[in-house]
Design a protein around this nucleic acid. Sequence first.
DNA 1: AACATATTCAACCGCGTAGCT
DNA 2: AAGCTACGCGGTTGAATATGT
Length: 276
Amino acid sequence: MGRAPCCDKANVKKGPWSPEEDAKLKSYIEQHGTGGNWIALPQKIGLKRCGKSCRLRWLNYLRPNIKHGDFSEEEDRIICSLYVSIGSRWSIIAAQLPGRTDNDIKNYWNTRLKKKLFGKHHEKQQQQQLVRRGRKIKSEIGNSMAIVFDNQVINNNNNNQSSFLPELSPAAPPYVNYQPLQFPSNSQQLFGHTDGVNHELSRTDTIQFGLDGASNQPITSCHVGELEKVVYSNTPSFDDGLQFSSDNNGLNLINDLDWGEMSSLISAPLYPSTVI
DNA sequence: AACATATTCAACCGCGTAGCT
DNA sequence: AAGCTACGCGGTTGAATATGT
């Protein structure tokens, strides 16, 4: 047996809303609220609509302060940044953009922003390249990396990637002169712990990492914000970013950090001014 | 002008889940 | 604990409109 229908499909109107229907719904909700029951609402108003349809119409179109179209550059930046960090969780993204609905943002991303970022022609190739490069970097990094907080290496024993921590999507082509991103919101900060005491990493904390001791490369350190650049810039000095490994240059307390945790510290660059 | 194709976006569908009984 | 209901979400659809030939 399938799922029970939410309403009597045979007696329910579908398709675009008429101005009269809009007026009825808007007027009722403004006066009485939704009553906490969308299913019962259309009957109360005398609308031959499914409750879900009423809810959607109200949330996406009729409720006050809804903005349509004309996304600003800043909104573009926020959407891209969050999409890279958390994926297609449109409701969460919409929560960061007052007046925008998840549906609107989803449509905008799927029809315009994606193309604006990747370019219509190369969209598919770019995405494949992202995946390939991600695998490459991931394999090079392996499991060993040290994160240092207040001069102490954080020993993160939790090997499970937290649900909000995304897989890193490295920039496809090498980017130069990109605009740095905002550090992710609080909910995306990384927690590590030493001696059972939790620490929350911030953008100004230092991450230390180094190349394989056998390569005779020096240990390098940078701030979290700079890590974005290290990972994505593909500059000669950090070619392909990161080879976290055990070190023999005096920093003995190297601990493992898995890829998902690392990726939570950074986001992909947006709006590269130059794509090589 | 007529037709074909692409794009946009409102609306629908079904699933996961929270809350209630 | 199990079953049911409604809500909220993300993927998808399709009509309307724009653009290209």
